[in-house]
Every structure is written in C-alpha cells, then in structure tokens.
C-alpha cells in the first residue's frame, strides 16, 4: 500500500509522460500483488494482464501518436480548486470505510447474503471446482454477458473513431497518388 502511494505521488509529480505510463504499469503490478495477498487470484490475474500489460502498451501507443511531454496549463487557482475537490472526495471515501466491517470479519454482511449458498450448493448445481467461474458464468451469466458487450462496444467505438480516420487518410493519399500519376502522364 505504501509503495502504491509512493508510485501514485511519483505519477502526479513527473511531467514526462513516458515515465508516467511506465509507473502506472508498476502501480497496476503492485495492485495485482495486493490482490494476491487478499486471496483474490482471479482479480490479480486480470489486473496484471490488463492494467500492467495492455493498458501500458495502449498508453505508449497513444504517446507515439501525440507527444511525450505534459503541457503545463492552468493557474494556481485552478490547481487549488482541484486539490480541494480531491481532498474532500478522499476524506468522504475514508470516512465511508469506517463503516465497513474489518477484513476477515465473519459476521460481515458479505458473508451472509448469497455467498454461503454459492459455496455450499455450487458443487451440486454447477459442478465446477472453481466457484469463481461458476458464479461468473452461470449464476451471474447476465452480468458477464453485459461485460462482454461492454468490451465489444469499446472495440467498435475505437474502430468507429480511429479506424475511419485512418481509412480516410489512406483514401486521400491514394487520391493524391492518382492525381500525381495523372500529372506525370499528362
């Protein structure tokens, strides 16, 4: 946690975006390690693969398209206002955690709603040794379907915005090429 905080501070301070994207990858990797400590192996898996791997690559791809230096903008008043908003939100979030049950508390609400049923019955009803999988794909099939659609929508959105622009540029280049050859021909 301390390391995550340190990396977060470094991300906020550093102006070189290349270093920032690397640091955010490191942040995700530490986060994945934290999930392993909390016994959430599936989540850690995803965090390591998506957070540390893919999103870093995508950020680097974006940096290659734009620039690797952060533009300094905004006055002092702007940054003070932003700091106030962040501080208040953070304070509210921390205040909210006071009501949460302690980690590993056996009378916590999360252990009493549907979880005992999943743990006791999923072996008979679904027959999967990994309860996470049976909850994800069977009991919560609709949620997972929704997530798949979210990913699908993300990809089609990126295609619709960036894929189109690329094609138009190619068309223009092709047009220029054609007019160029025409000039040469004439």
């Amino acid at each position: 946690m301390l390391m995550m905080g340190a990396v977060g501070l470094a991300i906020a301070r550093i102006r070189d975006l290349f270093a920032v994207s690397m640091l955010s990858g490191i942040f995700s990797l530490i986060g994945a390690a934290a999930y392993v400590v909390l016994d959430a192996v599936d989540v850690a898996f995803t965090e390591a693969a998506v957070g540390a791997g893919i999103s870093t690559v995508l950020m680097l791809g974006t940096l290659a398209l734009t620039t690797r230096k952060e533009k300094m903008g905004g006055g002092k008043s702007k940054s003070t206002a932003a700091f106030l908003v962040v501080a208040v939100t953070g304070a509210v979030l921390v205040y909210g955690t006071f009501d949460m049950p302690r980690y590993g508390d056996k009378i916590a609400a999360i252990h009493h709603h549907v979880v005992p049923r999943y743990i006791e019955k999923s072996g008979e009803e679904v027959g999967m040794p990994n309860i996470v999988t049976s909850v994800l794909a069977s009991y919560r099939g609709y949620d997972t379907l929704g997530e798949v659609f979210v990913i699908f929508t993300a990809a089609t959105g990126v295609l619709a915005i960036l894929g189109r622009a690329r094609r138009r540029r190619e068309d223009e280049e092709a047009d220029e090429g054609r007019s160029g050859t025409k000039e040469i021909a004439s």
Partner: peptide, 8 residues
Amino acid sequence: IFNVFAGQ
C-alpha cells in the same frame, strides 16, 4: 484496439 492505435 492495438492495431487501430498502432496503425495511426
């Protein structure tokens, strides 16, 4: 997504 980003 990667192809589209990198193809730019």
